[in-house]
Every structure is written in C-alpha cells, then in structure tokens.
Nucleic acid binder design. Structure first.
Lengths: 252, 252
DNA sequence: CGTTGTCTTGACGATTGTCAATGGTTGTGG
DNA sequence: CCACAACCATTGACAATCGTCAAGACAACG
C-alpha cells in the first residue's frame, strides 16, 4: 500500500524559497546564516498544496523525511486495534511533523491533510549529511525535538485534566497560543479541524465538545460560529484550563 | 528556592562505572565503543541512592543536566494554577528524564523521587562538547529524543482513550512493556508509584483506578496486591487498552 | 440546488467523581 | 522487635458528568 500523496497526482516542487518564506523566522533554518540557507533550501522539497484527506505518509512506512506545514492543517493519527482512528496531533503552519520516526526508522503515525495545505519536505538522509557539517543546524534539530517533547508534555497535561471543560479550555488556550506565536491573533482564529477530531483528540464525544463550547459561550468566555473562534476572556479560559500553560511550540 | 537534592545531604559519587552498569545496553552510551565509553563515563555523576520525596530539579530551574534512572522510580510533575500537582511522567531504570529542558534552557517539570532510587547525572555542557567530537553520540542523542517523542505519543494515545478501563489497561500494558524491555518479567512486576499518582497521571480519581483494577481481577485478567501486579491475560489486557501499543522505550 | 458532512440540542442511561469509612502497609523511633 | 504514625488501598452510597442515540439546523461543495 504505497499510499503517499504522490499516488493520485505527482506534486512538483513549487517555486518557493526558504529565504522568502513567511515562516522563515520560526521554521527550521531560523538560526543559520544566509549562505547555509541557500544550501539548506536546495534540499527542501516545497510541495504544491495538497487536498483534504490525502496522506503525507502512513504508519509503518520507512522514515524518509521530516515535514513542515507552510499553510493549512495536518493531523497525525493511528488506527487502534478496534479499527478506529485515534488522533495524535494537529500541526499548524510552521510546525514540524514526522519527528517521531527518527528513532525507530519508521513512521509511527499516519499524517493526513485536514484543510488543504502546503507542506515542505526535508529528506532526512541529506539533512543528516548537512548537519554533520553544520553544528548550528545539528543543534537546531536538537532544539526542535526538545520543543516537540515539551509540546507533547503539554498535551499530556491537557489530557490529564479530568473534566471536559478543562480539556476543551486547555485545547483552545493551546490553539490561541500557537496562532499567536506565529503572528496571528491570539483571540480570534479559525480552527483547522472539525469538532469530531477535537473530540477524538481529547478523548471526548463530539457532543460533549459542542456542549462545552456552548457553555463557554453562555458564560461569555468566547463566541464560536463553527470553526470561527473568538475568545473574549482569555485569562479566564486559562484559569478553566487549570494546567500550567503556556506550553506549545515557540518558534524554533 | 534552591531545592535540589543536594540540600539535605551532599550526595557524593558512587564508585560505579558505565562499563559495569547493568543498564549499559539500554542506556545512553549503548552504541559507542570502549574508548569513547571511558571518556563518557568521566563526565557522568553516579549519584548515591536518593530518598522518596527528594527533588532532582524543579520546574523553572536552569537546565544543567540530563538524568538517567539506575534503580527505583522517579516522577515528573508540574504545579497547576489551582495549586495541585499534575504528574507528567514516570521513569523506570534505564529511562532518561530532563530532556524537555534542552529546547528552552529551563526545566519545564519538577523531578521527584518516588521509590528510593539511584540516578546518574550527565551535565549537558560537557555532553554537548563531547557530542560535537563524536558524531555517533550526537546521533544517539537524537535517537533518544525521538524515542522520547514516540513514548509521549503513546501516552497521549493512552489518555486519548475515553473510558477508565481503557486508560488503566493501557497504563498497565505500557508498564509491562517497559519492564519487559529492561529484562524484567512482562507479567509480574512491582509498580513504583502509588494508586493516587496513577490516577493523577491518567486523569482519573484514585477510587476509579482501584475499582477498575478490582474489576480486572474479577475478570481474571490479573491479580494485584497493592503495588505487586501479576498479569494473567496480557493479550486481553492489550485488547482492553484498545490503542495500538506496543509503544514505550525500546532500549536506546 | 441537492447532497453530504458538520454542528447543535435534547433525553436518558452508564460511568465516574466525591464523600466517608475501614483496614492494610510502610517507615520510624523507641 | 514492637508501637505508633503516616500513608495507602479499597469499598459503598450518591450525585454529577459524560457517552449514546436521535433529530434537526447549518454549511460547504460540486
């Protein structure tokens, strides 16, 4: 089952350069200098936008690349023994996925496009070569991975909360934070994923997610029209989330 | 608040050598050669056993070292806004903690001794130096971090389960696996942590953890006498856990 | 403009948290 | 070795929360 995105159409590279990318400051090459950036740019595959539902890789496939979201939203998931999908993470612009495969040599999750999104692919064999020449890049990679660990610890914090309100609040705070760190508004954003995926991710039924959001609206903490979220009382939302945020993905 | 373990008594180094350590095969220097191991061993601080309740580091403190559990059990935790502790992870012999600090330069959790345990400390500044000389060690560090990411994804999987039975089953399976990977029995082990910490970790009340374990005993899936767990039907426990395990810490 | 998927709400039953009580375990100091 | 004090594990009763089922509104998309 070679079910990569290349199956249906072969996406060619776009004429995009790391140097001009809006994400440059928060992406992989954030701390390397101009000359090195040119070199780095050459190994990156800047894919054309991919449509909803398509896969960047599937669980068990051999590790080949690390990916960075340029726009849109990507989710990672596994299929449980019962045959259900369980969502492991959402990735917003500037965030990196595929890192978990580095240790085992195989992807442990599948990565699927949620909103149509553009993604950059960094083949690891080449990255590894370059890293051994550029200590700063090597260090940058370590930092990104450490941040990833930190992010996941924060997700764990979120899921460790016992009540649905705490979890949903923590989820929204984490989203707010991630958007904010990428230069978007911390108070108003469009969620890239449907409620059912949020529920799956948080270990809650869709209906519970909806009801909690409705409750938050009645308390005037926020307004929500579908995926469009506007947070009115961020501080109070953080209090509801209870756990020690801020947590997620600072620019690398 | 300099609340490290050194406060009460200054633990001196033990006369222990990485070369003779039972964990050598699954620890940090697993893949480096004999000469390099000597060098590596010199930078490791082999601490004397620490007592229950003592801290190895606290959240917000400046990152200085990575730690490896040699024996016993260590938990990492944060204090929530409400002033409660939330447990982020348990670390068994051969497992490494403190990795999340690498990116931010500060520990994001506090690390506290559960069962009295021995720990090795690896000062990072020196490790960083050695790593730039030994590419194999550098690569090993990346692998360890990637594994850590994978582990946490598995925890996320566990917490993403909606029912208490699924969560507790997943927790026990994960423990079974981790013990097994370290050469202990997969079916019979002593949990290093009290029920209340398991509950906290899983987002469940203590009583629920107890009741689920009692239910498992009635179903003859396992027997439990306090912390002593004996799994009778591991396969069925995995089915109850639902999520795709195996997941945790393969030897690095 | 219909089709499909998503969001929202209500009703009800199952699960889980809270409170309270009891017995067991572990560790400490005499 | 014993006695005591913490701490821990377990169980029951009851209330709150959450999942399930069902139905309808809304939105996105071809």
């Amino acid at each position: 089952m070679s079910a990569q995105i290349q199956d249906s159409k072969t996406p060619s590279q776009l004429n995009i350069d790391c140097k001009n990318c809006a994400l440059e400051k928060m992406c992989f090459p954030a701390k390397i200098d101009a000359e090195e950036l040119v070199e780095f740019n050459q190994l990156v595959i800047h894919h054309k936008p991919a449509k909803r539902g398509q896969y960047w890789y599937r669980a068990e496939q051999q590790f080949r690349s690390i990916f960075v979201v340029r726009s849109g939203c990507v989710k990672t998931l596994v299929i449980t023994r019962a045959g259900n999908q369980q969502i492991r993470g959402f990735y917003l612009p500037g965030e990196m996925f595929g890192l978990d495969a580095l240790g085992t040599g195989r992807y442990t999750t599948s990565a699927q496009v949620l909103q149509s999104s553009s993604v950059c692919e960094i083949p690891f064999s080449k990255l590894d070569e370059i890293c051994s020449l550029l200590p700063s890049l090597q260090r940058q990679l370590l930092h990104i991975m450490s941040k990833e660990i930190h992010n996941e610890q924060c997700l764990i914090a979120m899921l460790g909360n016992t009540t649905a309100e705490e979890r949903v609040a923590a989820f929204l705070c984490s989203m707010s934070q991630r958007f904010s760190l990428r230069g978007f508004s911390a108070n108003e954003f469009i969620l890239g994923m449907p409620r059912i995926d949020i529920g799956n991710y948080l270990g809650l039924a869709v209906e519970t997610v909806c009801r909690v959001i409705t409750r938050f609206q009645k308390k005037r903490l926020l307004t929500a029209q579908g995926k469009h979220i506007k947070i009115l009382k961020l501080e109070q939302l953080y209090e509801t989330a209870s756990v020690t945020l801020p947590c997620t993905s600072a620019p690398h």
